[in-house]
Design a protein around this nucleic acid. Structure first.
Ligand SMILES: [Mn+2]
Ligand SMILES: [Mn+2]
Ligand SMILES: [Mn+2]
Ligand SMILES: [Mn+2]
Lengths: 218, 218
DNA sequence: GTAAAAAGTTAGATTAGACTAACAAATTAG
DNA sequence: CTAATTTGTTAGTCTAATCTAACTTTTTAC
């Protein structure tokens, strides 16, 4: 059984090393807002537990065991978020902080029950995949809205940034997962997009926003 | 905001001092399975925070502030137990350990939502009262089943001991809260009761069991 | 009313997880 | 290719929460 602190290191290592397979002490330190010497010493401790492959001055890598443990915590986080939205009526902007705490609850039964009651969901309220009980998970090949071209029709699949502020912005424009969007035009100067959906005939979305929206082409 | 450890001391102080208004360092130490010197030093720390009235060699007392904080944690515990039973389908013998963890979650919204979804319950699945948002709570004047006499008719109101084993025993006899029971006879030698309810024509309940069942006379 | 036992406190050590200061290695810039 | 900058490590300190050993106060037994 791992401590809450170790679990948070595992999640951070997993998230930051997802792309290139490793992460620097510096980046991990900044992400966790914990000073580098503390991170170094924790990495040695986690290496002793076979969660991390640690060598001095080398980038940090999770072991297979570390990846699986991380995925199981992420599973608990995302199941919780889904449960809070679907069964308790919270908004998608309200659930992250609660899930950050509940993900550390030690009770396989609680999460199995959530999974059953939700009928084994594959995605969380932000479109992120929920790992299965073995820690297996797969991101679908979504595109960023910002990479799409004028004239294309797409469906909202996931949000990258899940800060309250961003999600509240999306709420204010009635943008949610599953929504079908037509790209009317793209301003060449600053890449602002004008899009059409539902009763929104011409909604302007900044590049900053479009970069954070993942879509499926339809 | 109090630490998880402080919250557990508050709950233990509240539970153990309920009857006589105070508790010894020794009893608290045994209940928490923490050595006496540790308890003494924690009591000094909690006294500095005005949660406990501490004087050397005197029994420990919670302050009004301490009592209120304790009651608010108990509120979260009991709301959680009720939520797990009523909304998630857990048995009353399964929920205590999960609630021991969830009671420490920092999210007023989560517990307000549980309260709403449960329609503001007054009692938890074991018949214990749920404190209101101000920490106010009142035990009704129940009797122990063991104190009742042959011929009386009673209704199951609460269980005192909530260990898995005891609750599973009650499950096996189909004894639950609200059940109407008629006391057929009491064996004078060992106080074993023979009772009648539902399809159970003559069920024998030992004194040990009857002492742990709280009933309302009807 | 003393002596033994129980309860409570003090002092000092330990562990997890954090920090700062100082130093070392690796990377980047000119 | 050297020098500056950035990144990473080592050493030592701190706090919260625990412990054991030794001592003191209170309670209980005779
Ligand atoms: Mn989240
Ligand atoms: Mn999410
Ligand atoms: Mn309980
Ligand atoms: Mn209960």
């Amino acid at each position: 059984m791992y401590s809450l602190v170790e679990e948070n290191y595992l999640k951070a290592l997993f998230a930051l090393s997802k792309d290139i397979g490793s992460v620097s002490v510096n980046d991990l330190s900044k992400h966790l807002d914990i000073k580098m010497p503390t991170v170094t010493s924790m990495m040695k401790k986690m290496a002793a537990k076979k969660l991390v492959a640690y060598e001095s001055y080398k980038p940090l890598k999770l072991t297979e065991k570390g990846k699986k443990e991380a995925a199981l915590i992420i599973r608990k986080h995302r199941l919780t978020e889904m449960y809070l939205v679907e069964k308790m009526g919270f908004g998608w902007e309200e659930v992250h902080n609660i899930a950050e705490q509940i993900e550390h609850i030690k009770s396989p039964e609680l999460f199995t029950k959530m999974d059953e009651l939700l009928d084994y969901p594959k995605f969380d309220p932000h479109g992120a995949p929920i790992p299965d009980i073995n820690g297996e998970m797969e991101w679908k090949a979504y595109s960023k809205l910002s990479e799409c071209k004028a004239g294309e029709k797409v469906r909202m699949a996931a949000v990258i940034n899940t800060s309250d502020g961003f999600l509240e912005f999306l709420n204010s424009r009635e943008i949610r997962l599953g929504l079908k969007i037509k790209i009317m035009s793209v301003e060449p100067f600053d890449n602002t997009m004008v899009v059409r959906y539902k009763k929104h005939d011409q909604e302007s979305l900044s590049h900053t926003v479009c970069e954070r929206l993942l879509v499926e082409k339809v």
